[in-house]
Amino acid sequence: MNTRRIALAVCGLTVGHARKARARALVDDLSFEVAEGEMLAFVGESGSGKSLTAAAIFGLLPFGLRRLAGSVHLRDTELTALSERALRVRRGRDMGLVFQNPLTALNPSRSVQAQIAETYQVHKGGTRGAAWARARSLLAEVGLASAANGPETYPHQLSGGMRQRVMIAIALACDPILLIADEPTTALDVVVQAQILDLLTRLRQERGLAVLFITHDLALAAARADRVLVLYAGRAVEEGDAARFFRAPCHPYSRALRDAIPAIHGLGGRLTEIPGLPPGPGALPPGCRFAPRCPSAQDDCHQTEPTMRRTAPRCACLHPSLETP
């Protein structure tokens, strides 16, 4: 598995406010890699910096925010060194992005075939006919046979799951190296969710697509990803093999997240809550940023900021749980 080429390498990525020097970093010294054909899941509470990381990789940070440090390599290209124009080309061609709400991202007045064909033509050129042929084959590939073979189809004629497939088809139009899917199935029911993930799995196997999968759903991440990275207040707090992670999380925050989800066969019992809230936009607590909410916190946690362990299981905690599963 380690012999596969690295598709995406992020190193020391830090995102913060462009003007407010005193505000805390929203993405803080984040490093990770995604290999070809691999799926890395990003999990963490709302506001932990998952979407901002995706935006920073794409060079699409919202106004007022800036990449303060760090590098982003897509294969051998350092994206942060590219001009805006060069980056735009790479964005459409080598990286695809799929959002949670596909309806807002699709043009309601144009057929999905036309929208896919256009994306392809803009980046790859060629004739209109070739672009349409490509659009139809992509629609077939994502399992929308009726749109692939039939008449022009408009977004409003499709269900949520089908629209999400169209978004994936658009993202795949130029055969990208990397796909970032930001909560692609949060609005969908379990059956459609399973279908979308089957599709992503197939694309990884067949095309070596690297996938960065952002989700709230820890069970889904553990069931479908190769590796999981847990973010807390902009920092990576644990990283590792998905199955191991769910069986034996080593960071108290990961454990708390796992214990918070209702198990379908575990009817009844009260869910374990994580007390308090993640730190707001202001200053961070001293020492470990999770300390105010941590059930395992000890005195030193309020003074010393933990760093990521270099050996597996990788986590950033002064008192990790390291028993082997």
Binding site: V191, Q193, A223, A242, F246
Partner: peptide, 14 residues
């Protein structure tokens, strides 16, 4: 059957 089960994976669709 479509509910994701951690550490088990789901290779097939429902």
């Amino acid at each position: 059957a479509a509910v994701p089960v951690p550490a088990q994976g789901r290779a097939t669709t429902s």
